[in-house]
Design a protein around this nucleic acid. Sequence first.
DNA 1: TCAAGATTTAGAATAATTCTAAAGTGTGGT
DNA 2: ACCACACTTTAGAATTATTCTAAATCTTGA
Lengths: 142, 142
Amino acid sequence: MKARSHHEDELHLTEQLGATGLRLTPQRQQVYDVLLHKRDHPTAEEVFMRAKKAMPEISHATVYNCLDALVKSGLARQVTLDRGATRYCPNMHEHGHFHCDVCATVFDVDLPQQAMKLPKGFKADHFDIAIHGVCADCAKKK
Amino acid sequence: MKARSHHEDELHLTEQLGATGLRLTPQRQQVYDVLLHKRDHPTAEEVFMRAKKAMPEISHATVYNCLDALVKSGLARQVTLDRGATRYCPNMHEHGHFHCDVCATVFDVDLPQQAMKLPKGFKADHFDIAIHGVCADCAKKK
DNA sequence: TCAAGATTTAGAATAATTCTAAAGTGTGGT
DNA sequence: ACCACACTTTAGAATTATTCTAAATCTTGA
């Protein structure tokens, strides 16, 4: 894990977005900063509220737009668990998500790297692995 | 895969629901029949529309209730892919879901059975594996 | 038969997401 | 510098998905 300066971050963002034909805007920067700042898999609504603190004029639709832009450019991932709002995660390292049914926290978990055998001709783009259960803390308290 | 008579099916349903403290009702039977009849991973809305054909008075809320009852009793699974409506699947065999980004079809795929290594103390209840990509038919047409 | 608890119903309410039309921004070409 | 064009943002309306509510109905056990 290499540290990146703020300036380098910006270059990285510009580059990744650019490769998808998108621009780096202050709003996209802000939304990305929110994701990086607290990596607790916030919903779009939560991202919206956090982003508003630094950028009060930002709108709901823009947050969705920015999140989509980040996802399309490979800077963030969507995390969908059950019914309910989609969450967002800036960790692009290959990993799965563990959802604690008790405290509802979402944890990143490493995956045993291994190829999934698909039917002939199917082309996989990416995987989403969600695990439901009880986290260590909640299992202990019980 | 063993064939089951209609009567046996009913016993099976009653038993599975019963183990969760739930009753077998005509509505739950109907919703389950819908799932079994066409295993194309319908949304709750689609299940509602199909169930209405055989049982015109059934309501929206009941379909959600029935689906929840089936899921809780281990008779069906929820399938969540991206944002958008949750889908339902009566295949309880361990498997993942392949979503074709082109034609939007959802396919059941077998999983290489293997234990996922979780952080210490975490207890997994079940997994959901979603794979996004392009199916064989769509890859060919391209 | 009665009471208690479970279930269904229609419709309202809420939550999540998308759409729309107008205004704003940035970039390359001249 | 000026313009045109494509990309973005914005507020708010609209749509979609899901949950809630209160009343009616059904089951089951005492």
